[in-house]
Design a binder for these strands. Sequence first.
DNA 1: CCCTGTGAAGCAGTTCACAGCG
DNA 2: CGCTGTGAACTGCTTCACAGGG
Lengths: 221, 221
Amino acid sequence: MADVRDIPDATVSRLPVYRRSLVQIISTGESTISSADLADLAGVNAAKVRKDLSYLGTYGVRGVGYDAELLLAQIDGVLGLGTEAPVVIVGMGNLGQALAHYGGFQSKGFPIVALVDSSMDKVGQVIDGIVVSHLDDLEHTVREREISVGIIATPGGAAQEVSNALVAAGVRSILTFAPTILQVPDSVPVRKVDLATELQILGYYRHREVTETTDSTDRTA
Amino acid sequence: MADVRDIPDATVSRLPVYRRSLVQIISTGESTISSADLADLAGVNAAKVRKDLSYLGTYGVRGVGYDAELLLAQIDGVLGLGTEAPVVIVGMGNLGQALAHYGGFQSKGFPIVALVDSSMDKVGQVIDGIVVSHLDDLEHTVREREISVGIIATPGGAAQEVSNALVAAGVRSILTFAPTILQVPDSVPVRKVDLATELQILGYYRHREVTETTDSTDRTA
DNA sequence: CCCTGTGAAGCAGTTCACAGCG
DNA sequence: CGCTGTGAACTGCTTCACAGGG
């Protein structure tokens, strides 16, 4: 109902989950799905699904559910998945190399088209069919290959500098694995994935001794 | 002030960020830090820092700030970082291998003590000094090495099965990279890191054309 | 009659603003 | 006088509950 620009952050972050559930449903041959079933697959409750989908301006059919294909197309539209978004990975350490090999990006519309490092040991090496180029050539690389997403897989100390270079080169958004608070212009969205942080957070919840509650509601994630 | 068990989720997820900022401050030789400075380092605002820290029952000193060492110790206490939490990684594909090589865990109190796979190609191989063992031996491995954290780095299809095995073996918490909604008992907290999802979320925010606002407030992450 | 779409209530997290201590 | 600690206001998200369409 609201314009596509007004979707709450919390909803946006669930859209990929719904998307995945829809792909799964479609692959089983179902063409229609209810909010309750979609909620099960996505690990949330049905009211949330309906509220979320209502922001897309999508219309389900009362008494029936949502057309899976149609809904998928709408979500893809909102997430801008219609066109491919070429990706550059900066930092060819263990993590960067693993990401380069990881097939999950290509198949989801995020082809990795460039790999960058600042060490001469790495530059020129071929990883997963791509020649590693030097950080100094980043701007050229980004413009030439029309890269829109930058992934930072460098140590924390280099992250801000790399981020600046990515922004200057014109990437539209950044995914960083560095444990660094990046300063970037408002116009460049950043998502941060921090593995050590995730483990530390688990540390807090782990102590909880279960008192009694082995009942119905499964905690899903 | 409240007991350590009542800290809001949002606060818990920021504690590791404060922690890192404190480590940084201490390394520069400062012994005291104000909420405003800590806020800068952590990329949040000062009121939030003070509110968050108030849940720890920590007392800063009015007119001065917080004792960095003391605060760090308190956070470590809350996050259970006093003792090491041995980790097993299940799934020795690209991601699993990268995680195995990644030094960031060991140094943060999460030593990787076991690697597991279900393929005979992988079992017996030595990665980063650890012999890969078979999924079927998981329970034995977990009990023998007193493993408390399981990391799932398998394809999505195997994730639920691996999760079940980890829970049965007695791990206290799980970090998963599989794009699967896991069903686990309430007593086992799960954090999920999904790389494709992160990129898709960025896709939504990327379209935004900046209208005018190139002003003060930097968007930080 | 089933399932969506949505106002309204409820809850959690954030920000404000200031009293009070060192 | 500076900076913490915290009620109170506010904002945004979730959940409820039901009206209404197919």
